[in-house]
Structures are given as structure tokens and as C-alpha cells.
């Protein structure tokens, strides 16, 4: 049986207390919410924090508030997020993304904040200590080489969060709290294209809430590529959102790619091609071609990189067709193994 390394556990009951604990622990502490990402990593000795700060007892992290848009506590479980009617009705991409994370049990445990801060993933990194030792480790942990591309000076581990591409398409921002105060930033600014330093979050900061803008007139969709209908992380995802006028003209749009880089990629040039046009097959094809340009999958996940690259265009097309209002139930059944309606 794989065992956790030793650690000290603290369970603060307020964000303030948690922030104080992080600050006082001199960088040796990590936050644990659902534990579904961190604990496997700890068992594989990818991370060995001396202190775990449990966030489960902080009620304010689970709050949902309506107002101008929607604010979601980062500690809400993905299952609770999926059960939230407002998310289902108004933020379809987020709902579809959350509903496809891992498995029902893991969604009962994992939180929105945890999914946004998910460690980047790589076939050379997400391995037991003994396995990593057999390749003399890698740049991301204990080694010097990025085996995905040995000449790379940068770690190429893959951003594998489902909810981030969806939330980026929805124009989300987040609140980060530390003992020194709080700051609200665009979610896009949370991410860096670096497999090791993939978050701009400071070690003493806690992601407390996600803010979604008013959604009137917007539609959104999330398509996830993975081998199986459950368990698997995305190896490509496409999130799209568009504000569509009564006559079908796109007024505003965002297209975001997930799992083809160390951060989710918003493809603004592709989205801008849609603005002022109806979502015709031609418009969708133009945008999908443009969206696929920055897709740079590497050979460190399931499926071959060439095929994943080629699927980028296809998955953006699926998302845009869904925005158009196409009946995608059969396609969903075949590709996502569920209808997600």
C-alpha cells in the first residue's frame, strides 16, 4: 500500500487563520482542500510538505452569492458546483467542465479552487519515486532534464484543469487572500506557461473565490478529449463562450484551449473572427482553424501529440456548433460518453 509521508496537520476555521498559518510556516506548508491532487502527489513523493493546512472547516470558502454575476467559494466541491442550478442554467461551460472532472467520488471531494490550482501533469512526473529515480528524475522534481524535450530550458508539464478553460471562456476573475490582504485578478493572470511555476499565486496566498460576470445573452460550452468517459484528465479541451444577438450575430466571444500547454490558452484572434458574424459553418471553420494554431501538445500525456494537435480544430468546432444551438446529444454520447445536458 502506498503511504503518505509524515506531516503536521492544522485545520483553521477562517481564511484569516489559514493565511496566518501559511505565512508562519516558512514555506513548508501546503493547502489541502479535497486532497485529490495533493495526496496522490505526496504518496508519490512529488510533494512532501511539512505542514498541511486543511481548508475543509472554513465555511466562507463554500459560499455562493448571486449578485452582479456569480461568486463561488473556492472550497465548494465540484459535485456541489454541478448541483448549483445557477451554474447549470447560466454558465454551461463551467457546468460541463465540472461534471466531467475525474469521477463522482472525486467530485464529491475535489474543490473548484483545487481544480484551478491543479498541479501540472506529465507522464515523466506523475510517477512513483522509484519510477522517477529510474529516469534520474526530471526538471520538475529532483532532476535537471525535461525528458519531454531534453533541450528545453522550461518544464513542459501540462495544465490539466477542466474548470480553468471553462472559467476563462466565461471571463472569470478570482480573489487571492494572504495575511497581508487580498487581491482580485483576472483568472487568466493566475497562470503562467511554465510547468513548474505554473501559478502566479504566492505560496502564502489562498484562492478564496471565483467571480463570474453577468451572463445574459451568453452561451458557453466545454469539450474534453480523453480516452475514457471517467477518471481521465483532459489531454485537450476546448471551451467557448459567445454573446449572441437575437439575429444570431456574435457580439463577443472567447475561445480557450486546455491541456495543450502548461497553461490554458485563450485564443483571442480566433474568437475575434467570429464577432459580427453568425455562427455559420464557414465562420466556425475559420475560427477553429485559427484556434488550433497555438495548440502545442507534447508527448507527455495519453494519445499521440500529432493527433491531439489535429483534434484541436475538431473540438473547437464541436464547441462552436453547440453554441450555435446544434443538437449535439449524439456527438456527446459518442465523444464524451454522456449527454451532459
Amino acid at each position: 500500500m502506498m503511504r503518505l509521508p509524515n506531516f503536521r496537520f492544522v485545520a483553521p476555521t477562517s481564511v484569516h487563520e489559514a493565511a496566518e498559518l501559511l505565512t508562519s510556516s516558512s514555506g513548508d506548508a501546503m493547502l489541502v482542500a479535497g486532497g485529490t491532487d495533493l495526496l496522490p502527489n505526496m504518496k508519490r513523493r512529488q510533494q512532501t510538505p511539512g505542514t498541511l493546512v486543511g481548508l475543509r472547516h472554513i465555511a466562507e470558502l463554500r459560499a455562493i452569492s448571486n449578485g452582479d454575476g456569480l461568486t463561488i467559494g473556492a472550497g465548494l466541491t465540484l459535485a456541489d458546483l454541478v448541483r448549483t442550478q445557477k451554474v447549470r442554467e447560466s454558465y454551461g461551460a463551467l457546468w460541463q467542465a465540472a461534471a466531467q472532472v475525474a469521477t463522482p467520488q472525486l467530485r464529491n471531494m475535489g474543490t473548484l479552487g483545487g481544480n484551478l490550482c491543479l498541479d501540472t501533469r506529465c507522464n515523466y512526473y506523475d510517477q512513483n519515486y522509484e519510477w522517477r529515480k529510474a529516469i534520474d528524475f526530471c526538471m520538475k522534481k529532483d532532476g535537471g532534464t525535461c525528458w519531454v524535450a531534453p533541450s528545453s530550458t522550461k518544464c513542459l508539464a501540462v495544465s490539466s484543469t477542466d474548470t480553468a478553460p471553462a472559467l476563462l471562456a466565461l471571463g472569470a476573475s478570482i480573489t487571492l487572500v494572504s495575511a497581508n490582504g487580498s487581491r482580485r485578478i483576472a483568472l487568466s493572470d493566475l497562470y503562467r506557461n511554465d510547468g513548474i511555476h505554473y501559478l502566479t499565486r504566492q505560496p502564502n496566498e489562498i484562492l478564496t473565490a471565483v467571480h463570474l460576470p453577468e451572463s445574459t445573452g451568453w452561451r458557453s460550452a466545454y469539450w474534453k478529449l480523453r480516452r475514457r468517459g471517467a477518471f481521465d484528465f483532459p489531454v485537450l479541451s476546448a471551451a467557448a463562450a459567445a454573446k449572441i444577438a437575437g439575429d444570431g450575430t456574435v457580439e463577443s466571444a472567447r475561445i480557450v484551449l486546455g491541456a495543450v500547454s502548461s497553461r490554458p490558452i485563450e485564443v483571442a484572434p480566433a474568437a475575434s473572427l467570429l464577432v459580427g458574424h453568425a455562427l455559420t459553418d464557414e465562420a466556425i471553420a475559420r475560427a477553429a482553424d485559427a484556434a488550433a494554431q497555438p495548440s502545442r501538445p507534447m508527448d507527455n500525456t495519453d494519445f499521440t501529440l500529432v493527433w491531439r494537435k489535429r483534434m484541436t480544430r475538431v473540438f473547437v468546432t464541436y464547441a462552436l456548433r453547440e453554441l450555435r444551438g446544434d443538437d449535439v446529444r449524439d456527438l456527446r454520447r459518442r465523444v464524451s460518453r454522456q449527454e451532459l445536458l
Binding site: 502506498m2 496537520f9 485545520a11 489541502v32 479535497g34 486532497g35 485529490t36 495526496l39 496522490p40 504518496k43 508519490r44 498541511l52 486543511g54 475543509r56 459535485a79 475525474a102 469521477t103 463522482p104 467520488q105 472525486l106 464529491n108 471531494m109 477518471f231
Partner: peptide, 25 residues
């Protein structure tokens, strides 16, 4: 590691994977 579901139990009524739940919590 949370990859098979064999260790599922109900925690406060919800199915979770007991291999990823801290006993101390």
C-alpha cells in the same frame, strides 16, 4: 491514488475515496 474506486466509503453520506481522506481530518 484515487484511480480505481475500490476504497469508496460513505463520508457524511457521500461516496468518497477513503485512500485520499486524511484520517486526522
Amino acid at each position: 491514488l484515487g484511480e480505481c474506486g475500490a476504497c469508496a466509503v460513505l463520508l457524511d453520506g457521500q461516496p468518497v475515496l477513503s485512500c485520499l481522506v486524511l484520517g486526522v481530518d
